[in-house]
Computed example of a mutant assay.
Amino acid sequence: MNTSRQVDTSGVWLVIPLYNEAAVIGDVVTRARSVFPQVVVVDDGSADDGAEVAREAGAVVVRHPVNLGQGAALQTGFEYVRSRPDMEWAVTFDADGQHQTDDVLAMLEKARAEDLQVVFGSRFLDDRTTPSLAKRLVLRAAVGYTNLTTHTRLTDAHNGLRLLRRDVVERIDITQNRMAHASELVEQIGAMDVRYAESPVHILYTDYSRSKGQSLWNSVNILVELILR
């Protein structure tokens, strides 16, 4: 984190879906709150003690009694932050440590400077992120399909790091509980005719994040689910 960087983060809420991430969620919340103090973690029916770890790290925790899927967890998080009168921006942020707060700061600066309502993170706008060639091809196919069906033009439609202004968050209604929610979210934003752009982000692929769903097969499953939804 570049501590010399001065950005007003008031009014920004991070929304973190959580499912069985007790090993890392405490560190993720602690690091995130050092920059963005307002964090809500939506525990999606975890079998471990990740919800309590997140709470001890300072996050607000909302819990699903059973596992419903990441789309449902994001929708619950949006409903929570919509109830907060101080919320001006919501950020979707992963629980496994692959997202960087510096990237969120850059997205926030871009949104304010260009009067944007949505900023999508893209791992394909610079060379910091290095997915395998096979994964890159699958993700590109998903982008092509999403752009064709959602009236948007993105380079990375299935990146989980997004910044949304309050007026957009208030209109989002995710019904796809599983991984197809990412395309549904883009589709809804495209239908709103809002001002959006992309910003380069660095996705950290670690052995841990791959074991939790960042594998090539997970990307293939996203593409299949997207086409069949």
Rank of each mutant, 00 (worst) to 15 (best):
L105A: 10
F93V: 11
G160H: 02
H64L: 06
H64N: 13
Y196D: 02
R140I: 11
V61D: 01
A95L: 10
D8G: 15
V194Y: 03
D156N: 07
S122L: 04
P17W: 00
R31A: 04
D173N: 11
H99C: 07
M192V: 09
S122W: 02
F120D: 13
D102N: 12
V224E: 05
Q176P: 07
G50L: 04
L139V: 12
Q6L: 12
V143K: 08
D156F: 01
L18Q: 14
A106N: 15
E21D: 15
N221V: 01
V12A: 06
H181P: 02
V15E: 00
V41K: 01
V91F: 07
V35P: 05
I172R: 12
N20P: 08
V29A: 09
F120G: 11
R128L: 13
L164V: 05
A142D: 04
A72V: 13
A73Q: 09
A197E: 04
V62D: 00
S46P: 04
P200K: 07
I222T: 14
T206M: 09
T155M: 01
Y205R: 08
M87S: 08
T129H: 07
V81M: 06
A90W: 00
I222S: 06
H202T: 09
L163A: 05
R136S: 15
F78C: 04
V62L: 02
T101M: 05
R153K: 05
D193E: 08
V35Y: 07
V40W: 03
S46F: 00
K110E: 14
R63C: 14
L226W: 01
L216E: 12
L108A: 03
H158M: 04
L223F: 15
L216C: 14
E109F: 09
A134M: 09
P131V: 12
A51G: 15
R112Y: 07
S132R: 15
G121Q: 04
L154E: 01
D115K: 06
Y208K: 10
T146W: 02
R195E: 07
S215G: 12
D193L: 00
R165S: 06
R166I: 12
M87R: 05
S215Y: 02
D127A: 15
L164F: 03
V201Q: 12
D103F: 10
S211W: 00
D27C: 10
I203L: 06
F93K: 04
V91M: 10
R136M: 14
M1K: 03
